[in-house]
Computed example of a mutant assay.
Amino acid sequence: MHTTTALFYVFSAVLLFASFRVITARSPVYAALYLVLAFFSASCVWMLLRAEFLAISLVLVYVGAVMVLFLFVVMMLDINVDSLRVGFWKHFPVAAAVGVVIALEMALVLMPGFDVRTAPEADAAALKLGNTKLLGIEIYTHYLYPLQIAAVLLLVAIVAAIALTLRRRKDSKYLDPSEQIKAKKADRMRLVKMAPTVELPPAPEAATGEKA
């Protein structure tokens, strides 16, 4: 057995163990940490399969951003885990059956790609470009329109998430930028005409009596 094959089985075993602990850990913090371990193990497997771009993307995007957000939310919120686990074993058979069906469907789709005999012979010049560059050429040539559609869908999802979570408090004070742009000089300043001279008020009677 080669070193690469041994490492593949080790990382795969760690990945399966961490994935199992994600759904069985009682603490949500431990579940999130096991998910981080699962992501790291998956990235190591992808590195062994020479998919460097996917491995680095998994670490940077999911471990570096998404999981940090998950941990921050889980640690800041007081989640009642006992109420979430009510009826777990009641629905476990249905969930397990659905999981097995999904795993079989993914296996049917992905297994033909691992058959080296049916794979076309790759050009020697193309292999020198590297995995990341080949992936970029494939995405931006054959899958350009699906990529643009996915980008538009993500943009719509971001705008919808902001619109759904936007709440205006009644006691908060804010300025409308459109009203500021429409403001004119007459709305900001008002000229008042006043007389040039003002009559002095009469002197008090006590002061006039003392002078007399």
Rank of each mutant, 00 (worst) to 15 (best):
M1T: 12
T4M: 14
T5P: 00
L7S: 05
F8P: 00
F8Q: 01
Y9T: 09
V10P: 00
S12E: 07
S19V: 06
R21Q: 03
V22L: 00
A25I: 01
S27K: 07
S27W: 05
P28G: 01
P28D: 00
Y30M: 13
Y30W: 15
Y30E: 13
A31Q: 01
L33G: 01
L37Y: 03
A38R: 00
F39W: 11
F40V: 08
S41N: 00
S43N: 02
W46S: 12
M47G: 08
R50G: 07
A51C: 11
E52N: 06
F53Y: 08
F53W: 07
L54P: 00
I56K: 12
I56Q: 10
I56Y: 10
S57Q: 07
V59A: 02
V59L: 08
L69C: 11
L69N: 10
F70R: 04
L71G: 00
L71A: 02
F72C: 10
V74I: 11
V74N: 00
M75N: 05
M75C: 07
M76Q: 09
M76K: 13
D78K: 14
V81F: 01
D82T: 08
D82W: 06
L84V: 01
L84F: 04
R85N: 15
R85F: 08
V86G: 04
V86P: 00
G87F: 06
A96Q: 10
A96L: 15
A97I: 09
L104D: 02
E105A: 15
A107S: 07
A107R: 02
L108H: 03
L108R: 07
L108E: 04
M111D: 11
M111S: 15
M111G: 09
V116D: 12
R117T: 15
R117W: 11
D123N: 11
A125E: 15
A126S: 14
K128H: 10
G136K: 05
I137S: 11
E138R: 14
I139K: 04
H142M: 12
Y143Q: 12
L144C: 01
L144Q: 08
P146G: 01
Q148H: 11
Q148K: 14
I149H: 13
A151G: 04
V152N: 05
V152H: 03
L154D: 12
V156D: 03
A157Q: 08
I158T: 14
I158A: 14
V159T: 08
A160N: 08
A161W: 05
A161K: 06
I162Q: 05
I162H: 04
R167S: 13
R167D: 15
R168Q: 07
R168I: 09
R169W: 13
Y174P: 03
L175E: 07
S178L: 12
I181R: 14
A183N: 05
K184L: 10
R190D: 05
R190E: 12
L191S: 10
V192S: 03
K193L: 13
A195V: 03
V198D: 04
P201D: 08
P204F: 11
A206S: 14
A206P: 06
G209P: 09
E210W: 15
K211M: 06
